[in-house]
Simulated assay, not measured.
Amino acid sequence: MPEGQIVRAVSGFYYVRTPEGEKVQCRARGVFKKKNVTPLVGDLVRFDWTGDGQGFITEVKPRKTQLIRPPIANVEQAIVVSALREPAVQLMVLDRVLVHCEKAGLDVVLCLTKTDLVTDEEEIVRVRSIYETAGYPVVATSVVTGEGIDTVRQYLKGKLSVFAGQSGVGKSSLLNAIHPGFQLATGSVSSKIGRGRHTTRTVEILDLPDGGQVADTPGFSQLTFQGMEASELSDCFPEFRLRSSECRFRGCLHRNEPDCAVRSAVEKGEVDAGRYEHYLQFLQEVEALRRY
């Protein structure tokens, strides 16, 4: 039975690429509804040919990872993209995206875009310091000057990566700079609401000429913490995870417990106070969702 990878999904059709490079337009067998399984872009599948480049997916192989928003499977790495200007950097939104990537078990690289629009270099240094201290590699980029583009290419080699971030932060422009052959549509930022207009409508896996694959996805904007336990949240902050074993109480939520190593690190300036405040706000959301 032929096998392949789902590289695009549109209106109930799944485009499966075979190892030989052929792309087959498939439907999913009804058995998946009974099993409550929906095939996702990134899935490795088996399918039956029906002729004329068409087929039916008969089996979805076990997934290594899975994201809900965007819906994609078997991603290894997230390139989390945040603009420094147009729209202005929003650290709470950025931290929200990072939590979801951590929960999914993805390696993370933080990519700061539009550095050519920043006149105060101290701002780039400040943002870089926050996230490098938290344990993330940070790459500052500009599609105008070419800064950082080669560095991002190196991170992409040999992996299936998803580009994650709000609409308008420059994901498609960055992908076009990495490989001009993609020719992805790009959009502008609304002056009224300060957010980007969606230019990517579907999840699609793109092959890179130097090896590796990237998934272009719609922007992240409505991420919630549905289904997350309060005890899980702190593990999604690498700098908290590193110190949690030093807390007096096992399962410490780092809120008001005595002898909390995380709060102590915040007071000493070893953990960013802004990240800690975002954690507390996220914790309230998690607890509120668990109550209802």
Rank of each mutant, 00 (worst) to 15 (best):
T133L: 13
K171L: 12
V99Y: 02
G165L: 00
G135E: 09
L117I: 07
Q90Y: 03
L110G: 01
K157Y: 07
S129A: 15
D116N: 10
V97G: 00
K171H: 07
V152Y: 06
G105Q: 12
R126W: 13
C111E: 01
E147K: 15
C111N: 07
V139K: 02
L98D: 04
G148M: 04
Q154F: 08
V118H: 14
R126C: 01
F163W: 05
E122W: 15
G105N: 11
K114E: 00
E102H: 09
P137I: 03
T113S: 12
V127P: 03
E122L: 15
T119Q: 15
K114V: 03
L112M: 11
C111W: 05
V108G: 01
D116K: 10
V97L: 08
Y155N: 07
I124W: 07
R96P: 00
N176K: 13
L156C: 09
G168M: 09
M92W: 06
G168S: 08
R128T: 12
V99M: 02
L117T: 04
A140G: 05
I130K: 02
G168Q: 08
G148L: 05
L91A: 03
E102P: 01
E121Q: 15
T141D: 02
V138E: 06
G135C: 11
M92G: 15
K171G: 07
S161C: 08
E122Q: 15
T113E: 08
G146C: 10
I130V: 13
K157F: 02
Y155W: 14
L174P: 00
G158C: 11
A134Q: 05
V108P: 00
L174V: 03
S129W: 12
V125C: 11
S173A: 14
T113Q: 09
D107M: 14
L156V: 05
V109A: 09
V127L: 14
L174Q: 03
S173G: 08
V125M: 13
V138W: 11
L106N: 10
K114A: 04
S142H: 09
V152H: 04
L98H: 06
G135K: 12
R128Y: 03
H100W: 14
G158N: 14
C101T: 10
Y131R: 04
L112D: 01
L106Y: 11
D95V: 01
E102M: 11
